[in-house]
Structures are given as C-alpha cells and as structure tokens.
Amino acid sequence: MKAAIFEEVGKPLVISDITLGDMGPHEVRVRTAAVGLCHSDLHYIDGTVAQPMPVVLGHEVAGVVEAVGAHVTRMKPGDHVVGCLSVFCGTCEHCIGGNLVNCSNQSVRYLPGQAQRITREGVHVNQGFNLGAFAEEMLVHENALVKVRDDMPLDRAALIGCGVLTGTGSVIRTAKVPPGSTVAVIGCGGVGLSAVMGARLAGALRIIAIDILDSKLELAREFGATDVINGRDGDSVQKVIEMTRGGVNYAFECIGAKRTAEQAFEMLATGGTVTLMGVMPPEMMIEFSGRDLFYRQKKILGCFMGSNQFPTDIPRLCDFYMDGRLPLDQMISKRIRLDQINEGFEDLKAGNVARSVVTFDI
C-alpha cells in the first residue's frame, strides 16, 4: 500500500509502498478515508521539532475499521473511527485522574522511534504520532481511536481528531471560558478557527480574531468572531484594549511564536487568562511581566491537544457538526490526493488554506 514518507528535513515527502506488521491483541487495522495537513506535521518537516526518520507522519485522520485484535471490544470491522495522537492506557495516574493527554504509559504511547509497525522493503519505518496517517492504511492501538456515527462525513470527522479538538478544547476544557466572556484568538489557521468556534459554543460575548491575512479573518467571522484585527495594521494589543475598555478575559495564542505569546498576555484584562497552544521550538523562552502576574493576577495556561478526553469529546463534536453548530464545511479549503501532499504543504506554509485534506477512495 502507498504512504507518504518523510525522509529528510526540508525535502519533499516520498510516495512509497509500505507494509504493516501483524496485528496485536489490542490493535486495530484501519483503512484511511481522510487525513488533514496540520501545522504539527509541518513542524517536523521543516525541522522545528526533531523526529526519527524515515517516518510516516499524519495524525488528523478518520477511516473505516478493517480488522480488530483479539482483545478489542469497543469497535468492529466496518465501524467509522477518528484517530487521535493522545493515545492513552486508561490505567496510569494521569488517565485515572481524567488527564488522558498526559498518559505516561510508554507501552501504549510509544516514544518517537519505538513503534515497530511499519516496514519498507523489509526496513523499519517510524510511525509518526503513533498513527502514521499519511498512508492508505494504519495499524494502531485501540486507544488511539474512537468510533463515531456512521452519518458523519469522514473528511470533516478527520479535522475533529486534532485541530478542532485542540481549538475547542482549549476554550472549553483548558481555560473553561464561562458565558459572557471576552475572548481574543491570535492566529486563524485550523486551530485558531476552532478556538473561535469553541468560544462561540461556550457563549462568549465578544470574540476578537487576530491574523495577518484578511482571507483568514473573513473565515473567522464565518466561524463566529464578532470582531477582527489585521496584525499588520498597527498595535494589536492596544486595539484589543481599546475595543474592550481594558483587555479581554481570555486570550488564546495559536501560532507558537514568542512575540504573539507575549502579546496575548499583554492584551489581558486584570485577572485574565492566556492559553498557549501553538507548538513552540524547545529552546524558545517567553517573557512576561512579574508585576502583572502578582498585582493584576493574570494567569498563564499551557494546552496540549485541548486537554481532551477524546473518547467522549470527538463524538460530541460530531454531534455538534451534524446539528449545524460546528461549521466544518468552510474549514476544508482543498481536497487533494496523496500524491499531491507536497503541494498541500506548500499551500499550508504560504497561508493559502485553512485546511487541505488528503482523501482516499474507500
């Protein structure tokens, strides 16, 4: 079967034939239906984050179950499923405490380079994110998947597995935004647009979207933003403070850059909370005012994958979409084939798309 393999930093992915290993008792084989191109993949491709190579990346994925291991009971062949990179064991201290994204069991959530499920001409190929979704099929642990309703379109379901789950979760689960709040979202890619949707679902009174591309700001309005600011048109922090008469209650940084993280903190009102969810280089240091932390009681939260509990969150988000309250149709800018994946990443780097989705004939 075909897969797109990342072999060298800064170089195009290579379309090659791969072979999946034998299925373990808690594993599931999935026929890939759709996989989104996410900035997290791009961070590995451009070398921002290290990853053993060669590797099959891809993690924002939905598909159809082909076969299940002997001990798998929660899904069966033919079920529609969404994958999530925050695979969990369900028994460690974090999982029992409800923090599935912090699962520490490395026998389930393999560290990069440890999963031994993929080969190419007999040679080991790494499995990115414990999923390896840039392929026609995947072999994954059952706790990396959740069954979804059969009438949920799988290309839109794929988006929920990462970008939508992260953005909405950052608002609802991480920051716990209450109704009537004022919110600012910096960066209107897939995750930022999802944070806008999350703020709308949470009942935020005012949602200010900030980006440097007018096309993305137009999308943000469609997704629920009440106000937009182009970051190239002056001081965004000052504009937010003026618009809200003192700053927002909640700010969300969706880019992973030092300056935008600091801006998100600066635009907070007294007692406000900033949530940082953009992927940042390991060496990046961010500066905040100690005076603001102490006297103005501003708060800083880190957010990984929307602090999700994806076995329940993803089916609920599918229900929101089917009920017309999650406008995912507008998020898909392009549907492409696997052999067009490199062009898709060029579009992502240029900021031309909210999401491109690789779709497969199934």
Rank of each mutant, 00 (worst) to 15 (best):
M1L: 14
A3V: 06
I5P: 01
E8L: 08
P12M: 09
L13P: 01
I15R: 05
L20I: 13
G21S: 15
G21R: 14
D22M: 10
V28N: 11
A33D: 09
H39S: 06
H39D: 07
Y44N: 00
M53V: 14
P54R: 03
V56D: 03
V56E: 05
G58Y: 06
V61M: 14
G63P: 11
E66F: 03
T73F: 05
G78S: 10
V82M: 04
G90N: 10
C92W: 06
Q106E: 12
G113E: 09
R117N: 12
T119F: 12
G122N: 10
H124A: 14
V125I: 15
G128F: 10
F134P: 04
A135E: 01
A135H: 01
E136S: 10
E137H: 13
M138H: 01
E142L: 03
A144F: 00
V148Y: 04
P153W: 08
D155I: 09
I160M: 14
T168A: 13
V171Q: 03
A175Y: 04
A175Q: 05
S181N: 09
S181V: 09
T182H: 06
T182N: 02
V185W: 04
I186K: 03
G190C: 10
V191N: 01
V191E: 02
A195W: 02
D211K: 14
D214L: 04
S215F: 03
E218Y: 02
L219C: 01
R221N: 00
R221H: 03
G224V: 09
D227C: 11
V228H: 04
K239A: 15
G247D: 11
V248N: 09
N249C: 02
I255S: 07
G256E: 11
T260I: 09
M267T: 12
M267W: 13
G272R: 05
G272H: 05
G278V: 12
M280P: 01
P282R: 07
E283L: 04
I286C: 13
I286G: 08
Y295C: 01
K298T: 10
C303F: 03
M305S: 14
F310A: 07
T312E: 13
G324H: 11
L326H: 05
M331W: 01
R335P: 06
R337T: 14
I341Q: 08
I341S: 07
F345S: 02
E346C: 01
L348Q: 06
K349W: 04
G351F: 11
G351R: 11
G351P: 13
I362E: 03
